[in-house]
């Protein structure tokens, strides 16, 4: 019967948390350890097992309040993870794609018909969007660490989630724009070689992955009360 008090508390706490599975597991392991230690301390003071566990849980705090504080930290951690992905993966993806294009297709001027100037503007805007998105993510990571103790975790989590969502949205729009522009100029270029189609598929897989991360990041940040 006594063991149910700690089990019930930890299970209830776990059911309220969203975030990286490993981080949630770590927090719950620490919680269980702390409650077990407190129970042992109360047993040493002469309480029964059940009383000791009940006292330990009371001292730990109301589950709703503690879950809220834990969730804020989990949301910040998820936001940090998403921003790292954005800061690292976007430049890598861009470099890989550009290198692949130069290797397999060659410079734009080597095309039989040079693309119109507006097409190059769209291409450059797409490159710039990716660079800005990754730069903003990097800046947010640095500022987030510097301001970690000055600002509430809930605010930092929501800011990280918003930046991630906007960054992924901008990258998505940039890529859609270049596809639409290419389809307008010369649809055959979209499917001209298997390696480039594979590179495009990888790019879209990464964008979808980033989108899922950003969505989960936002959901972790918005369930914080």
């Amino acid at each position: 019967m006594g063991a149910d008090v700690i089990d019930g508390y930890v299970t209830d706490l776990g059911s309220r948390l969203r975030g990286s599975k490993r981080q949630v597991r770590d927090l719950l392991t620490e919680t269980r350890d702390s409650l077990t230690d407190a129970t042992e301390a109360h047993l040493g003071r002469g309480l029964t097992e059940q009383e000791a566990q009940r006292r330990a849980v009371e001292e730990f705090g109301p589950v709703r309040e503690i879950a809220n504080e834990y969730q804020a930290e989990l949301a910040v951690a998820y936001g940090t993870r998403t921003l790292i992905w954005l800061a690292v993966v976007l430049p890598l993806m861009h470099m890989a794609w550009e290198y692949g294009r130069m290797l397999l297709i060659g410079p734009w001027q080597d095309f039989g018909t040079r693309p119109p100037s507006w097409y190059l503007v769209v291409a450059q805007a797409n490159d710039l969007t990716s660079g800005i998105a990754s730069g903003v993510a990097l800046l947010a990571l640095v500022l987030g660490r510097m301001l970690a103790r000055r600002y509430d975790a809930r605010l930092l989590a929501r800011t990280a989630a918003t930046i991630s969502f906007l960054a992924v949205g901008a990258v998505l729009l940039g890529n859609l724009a270049i596809i639409a522009a290419t389809a307008h100029v010369d649809p055959a270029r979209l499917v001209q070689s298997l390696p480039m189609s594979t590179a495009s598929l990888i790019t879209w897989t990464v964008i979808v992955r980033l989108g899922l991360l950003a969505r989960r990041c936002l959901s972790c940040a918005t369930i914080v009360g």
Partner: peptide
């Protein structure tokens, strides 16, 4: 202080 607040 609620001891649970120490971990966050």
């Amino acid at each position: 202080l609620p001891t649970g607040t120490v971990y966050p």
